[in-house]
Amino acid sequence: MYMEINKEEIFRTHRAQKFALWLSMIGMFMLFASLSSAFIVYTASGVDKGIKTILPSAFIYSTIVIVLSSVTIHFANKAVKKEEFAKQKTFLLATIVLGVLFFVLQLHAWSVLIDRGIYFINTNASQSFVYIFTGMHLAHIIGGLLVLIRCLIGVSRKIPYIRNLYRMELAVIFWHFLDIIWIYLYVFLLLYQ
């Protein structure tokens, strides 16, 4: 049997998948929201609780890096819309490099904290929460990097334009989301430092 499929139906599927991505971001947001509320409740439970240190400056650099990566992926997306694939590749690569740099900077921030004697295993769990926040975010960053690499492989293998465009569209939304989540977490932690 040969089934014919409407073009309209394909576009509808694409729209639905994009919507599913937005929904899953609501789910991820709930994860961080619940962690934040757990942090607030825990920190309020005693005067000896709280972060009790100035956040490492590595967090500022990592914030700059991830914002930059959002800019580069924006340009990559612009390039793919103009069908400038070489440019798209360069910007995608830049985004991936910045993403990895972000990852490294976060790990560096952890080592700074450890040098200060602020360990993950800690009787003041507010300080453990800093690791949980950043760690859970990094777990999502790994997912984001995989998505970006898939885009890069796609454009290198010259997949059909419409699929390239679509992949990029999803990747851009997700990467911006990760950026925004990090800014939220950073501001949240700054307020509690």
């Binding site: 049997m1 040969y2 089934m3 014919e4 499929i5 409407n6 073009k7 394909i10 599927t13 694409h14 998948q17 059909p160 419409i162 699929r163 679509y166």
Partner: peptide, 17 residues
């Protein structure tokens, strides 16, 4: 209604089943 034959980007990969 006009229908077009399945295109490579279709997500219904296995229409010949």
């Amino acid at each position: 209604m006009s229908s077009t034959a399945i295109t490579p980007e279709a997500s219904f990969q296995d229409s010949h089943e």
